[in-house]
Design a binder for these strands. Structure first.
Length: 416
DNA sequence: TCTGGGGTCCTAGGACCC
DNA sequence: TCTGGGGTCCTAGGACCC
């Protein structure tokens, strides 16, 4: 059995390019929520040395110098493009794990022509969706990730790590490129003189377990060719659900913060119902802008456990606003608010008690209707009053591309 | 002036139980 | 002066990933 990791190249930037050919060979940046940071870059932007996560205002001059096009993130478009890519990949695999919005692991049987197989994937995905992808193939997921890194960087998007080339590859690649080794661990390993992946896999198991925990040990086994991470075809239900946003402008009034908290609670409740779960705990939090050191700083959160596990929007908004009452202090410039749901379990495991109000027992039907209407007629067609109408605190998104694939009015026009 | 959001897993330590 | 052993659950913090 082999694994292929298929990863879209510069996914968000490529999505924009698919529908706007003028962007094909020019530098493209996608911005974070609130248009603050650069979270995706086309190859030209990377080549210009502009890093991932760079705040736009600090790099304004360099961006202008290369005439970069800036786009707000358009998650509706990216989500839809992702689904198209994944559907195209499915026939290539015996089993498939959608690992992230732009990556999938394909489990494939042994074959003789891996290079041709990788090429076929690249070409088919490009033909069907316009998305450039890279393919890395190996006997474990961790090695497939590494093969993909090499494919992207050195091998025109297609590479396999085999029994015979593995040692040479591991000696050549720096240990920090391994899936699961982040900045801190990389520094630690370098400090001990372990520079290449090969240096790491030569260490004794008990030492690795002591320094990198059991997860690190599994990772090293995988690098040696012994599979430890299974394919996860059906992802588990989320154990935590977080909804938070920076405000589009500074917020000082309690009413706006209340609306934002209610807004996030309602969205979290929707996510909860999408996976047929209920939550037993909710946290609300608010904070000022930590980068504005001249402002008085404040940040606080409050947790409340719910007597009866629920996914009811009204109940969750009420709890979230109660939490907010415990932590809100006037006189601060607030920059962000959010809520987190915890203690999440399947909705058929709710423990009611004698005092559960009748409307709670019936609330499932109401929420079904609410979700159905909002799904058919668009978000916030029906919403709770606490969420407010004008929403002056909403995140900025000033450079968003059209929803080419999900909205009739935004359908691209072709002149022939 | 302007700095993202949403997840996972592991470990250690405390509370509590028998 | 003496002060068990084993277990669960929860939380906070660290590290990592996309």
């Amino acid at each position: 059995m082999q694994y292929a990791l298929v990863d879209c190249n510069n996914f968000y930037a490529s999505c924009e390019r698919v529908f706007d050919p003028k962007l094909r060979h020019v530098p493209v940046c996608i911005l974070s929520n609130n248009d603050g940071c650069i979270i995706a870059r086309s190859a030209e932007v990377k080549a210009a040395g502009i890093p991932m996560g760079a705040p736009v205002f600090k790099w304004r001059k360099q961006l202008k110098a290369i005439n970069a096009r800036l786009y707000s993130s358009n998650y509706t478009l990216y989500g839809d493009m992702s689904a198209r890519v994944m559907n195209t990949l499915r026939p290539f695999a015996d089993n498939m794990e959608v690992y992230s919005i732009d990556e999938a692991f394909l489990q494939i049987r042994e074959r003789s022509d891996y290079a041709a197989y990788g090429e076929a994937i690249k070409q088919t995905v490009y033909q069907y969706t316009g998305m450039p992808v890279s393919v890395g193939i190996a006997s474990t997921k961790t090695l497939a990730k590494l093969a993909n890194f090499i494919a992207k960087k050195y091998k025109d998007g297609n590479f396999q790590i085999t029994e015979s080339n593995r040692e040479a590859v591991l000696k050549y690649i720096p240990v920090g490129e391994v899936w699961g080794i982040g900045r801190r661990t990389n520094e630690k390993l370098n400090h001990w003189g372990l520079k290449s992946v090969y240096d790491l896999v030569c260490q004794p198991d008990n030492w690795i377990k002591k320094e990198l925990t059991v997860v690190g040990l599994k990772m090293v086994h995988e690098l040696r060719g012994k599979p430890c991470f299974d394919l996860q075809e059906h992802p588990d239900a989320r154990k935590n659900i977080i909804c938070s946003r920076s405000f589009g402008r500074i917020v000082t009034d309690k009413i706006s913060v209340r609306e934002a908290i209610a807004h996030h609670a309602a969205r979290a409740a929707e996510k909860l119902r999408e996976q047929d779960s209920v939550a037993t705990g909710i946290t609300s939090y608010i904070r000022t802008n930590r980068f504005r050191q001249q402002d008085p700083q404040y940040g606080q959160s409050h947790y409340q456990s719910l007597e009866v596990a629920t996914s009811n929007t009204a109940a969750l908004i009420e709890a979230a606003l109660f939490n907010l009452e415990q932590i809100f202090c006037s006189g601060y410039n607030y920059a962000k608010a959010g809520i987190a749901l915890s203690g999440i379990r399947p909705s058929d495991q709710v423990q009611y008690n004698l005092f559960t109000p009748e409307q709670e027992l019936k609330s499932g039907d109401l929420m079904k209707v609410l979700d159905a209407i909002n799904h058919q007629h668009g978000n916030h067609t029906l919403q709770f009053g606490a969420m407010g109408l004008k929403k002056p605190w909403l995140t900025k998104s000033d450079f968003k591309s059209p929803n080419y694939t999900t909205k009739w009015a935004d359908l691209p026009l072709v002149k022939a």
